[in-house]
Amino acid sequence: MRKTMLPLAAALLACAALATPGLAQPTVTVVDYGGTWQAAESKALFQPIAKKLGVTLREDSLQTIADIRLQVQSGKPTWDVVALGIGECLAAAKEGLFEPVDYSVVTNAADFPPELRGPNYVPGTVWASFVLTWSKEKFKNGGPQSWADYFDTKKFPGARAAYNAPRFMLEAALLADGVAKDKVYPIDIDRAFAKIRAFRKDVAVWYTSFGQAVDLINAGEVDVVPVLDGRIIDAIAKGAKWDFTFNQGIINAACSAIVKGAPNKATAMKFLNEMLDPELQANLTNYFVYGPMSPKVYATGLIKPEVAVKLNSYPANFKMQVVLDPHWWADNRVPVQSRWDAMMKE
């Protein structure tokens, strides 16, 4: 009896030993915008990082920086790492919602241009590009190729959808009005608004979210729509007979940061560093078509050439675009938004 008990006890002990490291492992909670994008990011990036660091990964999703504000105001935040658009990072950092970044740990940040990082945030994983898209059924012999074409309903007749927000739209308006790519900032607000005001009568529908824009595309309600590149590439992959161009795209950086009072700050800092690793970012392209942000990513040789040419950060594509200036928007967001609201209610 005693002899038979021993191996059983040993087996139980072994099981316990296998299980406990999991319990004792540090945890990190990573938060992005959710949906299919975060699912891809998780597979390509978060899960490999967690494995590499030996941490337990938890994930959540957010919609606006208000979600982070509620976390911080609660006094006991549960989130560690948050991923946002760079504009949101600037606003949240200004509000004091982030921990300072320890650049002695986040060494990969040094690869990036300094204007993409700050004391409380670092660059994110991918770029998102506001690009011009059109229905191939409507424009069988080639669609609009520039913002000038987008605003010109005589040259390219067809129902327009427009983004109901000043960011991206003001840049597009200036480019359409003939402003050179490197002269977009500081934005000539009056000139941009004048262009859009004249265009309002030609807009069939103003959308509020990019998801809504994709719905309009799929429902066939519009013929020309500016939308984020990831959204249109996904829609085309799912069967939409549409096309797009990176020409004059307005490309926006992402960012990452650690929530103020995060429960696992030290682990989160290491996690942040790994998120900027060029090889891990290269892996992202196996799952999603957004262009990785790391300047070293194309040098890794890990991105398939036929995939690389489709990405917004691929040098040839990147060159055609204008990089959105988050600092200009941080300084001008409130008055521009209120002027936009007033115009939309005219």
Binding site: T64, A66, V203, W206, Q212, Q337, D341
Partner: peptide
């Protein structure tokens, strides 16, 4: 109003969403 108004009808709920995204704090 967001979907069927197509940007021509802005009700308070939509404006509050805009305000949350635009202004610092609640």
């Amino acid at each position: 109003p967001t979907v069927l108004g197509g940007g021509r009808v802005t009700m308070i709920g939509q404006q509050i969403a805009t305000a949350i995204a635009t202004y610092d704090g609640f």
